[in-house]
């Protein structure tokens, strides 16, 4: 199972993903992917530090799938978090 670490950014609440360089990106495809428990624990530890430093809120691991080089969140909730609402809000 491939996982990435996600959270919400402190200042604007936006959905972000932990990148391989330790930054947080709003793009799921920038995320650092891990596929074993030890690496997942390391990601979680980085997330806990970022939360303690008040950079992000509530980091947690999510499962992702790789499709033609693009990452896709496995659960619909996470897919919506990554891509935004599925409705054309604000047009009315």
């Amino acid at each position: 199972m491939t996982q990435v670490l996600t959270a919400n950014r402190l200042d604007d609440g936006r959905v972000v993903f932990l990148t391989p360089t330790g930054d947080w990106s709003p793009d799921l495809n920038d995320a650092c992917t891990v596929s074993d428990d030890d690496a997942a624990q390391e990601l979680s530890a980085v997330g806990a530090l970022a939360e303690a430093a008040c950079t992000v809120i509530g980091p947690y691991l999510i499962e992702v799938l790789e499709d033609e080089g693009q990452l896709q969140a496995a659960a619909i909730r996470e897919a919506i978090r990554a891509a935004g609402p599925t409705v054309q809000a604000g047009q009315f």
């Binding site: 919400n8 604007d12 609440g13 936006r14 959905v15 809120i57 509530g58 909730r77 919506i80 978090r81 935004g84 609402p85």
Partner: peptide, 12 residues
């Protein structure tokens, strides 16, 4: 929360 501010899926 006492001031009406939630954290939802995408933002506050």
């Amino acid at each position: 929360l006492m001031n009406g501010l939630y954290l939802q899926l995408h933002a506050y």
